[in-house]
Amino acid sequence: MSSASTSLLPVDANLGWALAVLLATAVAVTATARLSPDQGFGRAREVLTAGVRAAVQLIAVSAVIGWVVSSRSGLPAFLILMYGVAVRTAGRRITANGSWWWAGMPIAVSVIPAIALLLATGLVPPHGIAVIPITGILIGGALTATVLAGRQSLSALAQRHGEVEAGLALGMTERDARIEIARPAASDALLPGLDQTRTVGLVTLPGAFVGMLLGGADPLVAGAVQLFVLIALMAVQAVAVTVTLELVARCHITSEQPDGPRATRARRFSVHRRRTPVTPQP
C-alpha cells in the first residue's frame, strides 16, 4: 500500500515545482482580477501567505505528529492549540474590535458535544491518530460556519439598520429586532455543508474517505465513516450558526466598538420607547 501511495503523490522535486506553479497561479489570478474588497492586492497577498503558512505548518505537524498521538499530554495540548487558532481566525474574520474572542463560544458549543458523542459510542477510538483528524474536521467546519454566519449577519445589519430601528420603534427588543434581520443572512452559512453532503460521491470524494482507502480500509467501511463525519459536520455547523446568530443579535459580536454611535443611538432610542407611554389616538 505504501508503494501505491508513493506513486499517487511522489514527494520529490516535481511536487515542489507543481505546488509553486499552482500557488503562483492563484496569486496571479487574484491580483490580476483584483479580487479584494478594495479592488487592490490585499487578497493576493493573503493567498500567498496562506499557501506558505500551509506548507510550513504541515511540515511542522508532520514532524511532531508521532509524538502527539502517543503522548498523554501532547494530545490535549494539540487539540487546545487547534481550538485556539480556530477561535482567533474566526474572530478576526468576523470583527476587528475586542469582541473577537466571542467566536470561541459557537465553536466550543458545537464541537465538544459531537466529539463526546463519538467517543462515548466508540465510533472513534480514544487514540490520537483517530481523535486529531476527526476533531480537526469538525473544528474546521465550525470555523467556516461561524465566519460565514457572523460576516453575513453583520453585513445585513449594516445595510438594513433602518429596519432594525423601525423594529425598535414598534416596541421590539434590540435582540429581536436584530435577529429578524440577521437570521436569513446567517442561514446561508449552512449552504456549503449542505452542498458538500448532497454531492458526496458524485462530485467530490472527501478527505476521510480517500484517506481510509489509501490506508487499505474496505470501501464500505470508509463510506460509512465518511457518512458519519458529514452528518456530524452538519450538526456542528447548525449549532455554530445558531449560536453565532444569537451572539450577533445580542451585540456580543459586532462590527462596531461596544459604545459605537449606532449601538448607543439604538439603545437610547429603545430606552426612550420603553419609558414613553403611548397615547391612544382619538
Rank of each mutant, 00 (worst) to 15 (best):
G66N: 10
N14K: 11
A249T: 04
S5R: 14
T276N: 06
G150I: 10
G104V: 12
M105K: 05
L247P: 00
Y83F: 15
Q152N: 12
C251A: 13
L143E: 00
N14Y: 13
A217S: 14
I231S: 07
R160G: 02
A182P: 01
L23H: 06
F41S: 12
R53K: 05
I65N: 03
P126Q: 09
V241D: 01
A130W: 15
Q237L: 02
V203S: 05
R93C: 12
F269D: 02
R274L: 13
S99E: 03
Q196N: 13
D176M: 12
A240N: 01
H252A: 11
I65G: 01
A177I: 08
L58V: 06
A33W: 14
L22E: 06
R72C: 02
A4Q: 07
M1Y: 05
A103G: 02
R160D: 12
I65W: 08
V124P: 01
L247F: 06
L58R: 03
P10E: 09
Q281T: 14
V239P: 01
T49D: 09
E256L: 12
T121S: 15
A189E: 04
N97E: 09
L168G: 01
L230E: 07
I139A: 03
G141T: 05
I115H: 01
V21A: 12
A156S: 09
Q237I: 04
S62T: 12
H127S: 09
P280M: 10
L230M: 14
V271L: 14
V111S: 04
I139F: 07
T199W: 08
A108W: 11
L79A: 06
G211P: 13
T173G: 11
A33C: 05
V210K: 06
V164G: 01
M172N: 03
V29M: 09
L138F: 08
Q281H: 10
Q281I: 14
C251S: 15
G74E: 10
A26K: 06
I179A: 01
L117E: 03
S2Y: 11
W101I: 07
S70I: 07
D188G: 11
M82N: 02
I94F: 08
T279P: 02
G201D: 04
A60P: 08
L233N: 04
L9M: 13
T25W: 12
V29Q: 03
S5P: 00
S2L: 15
A13N: 11
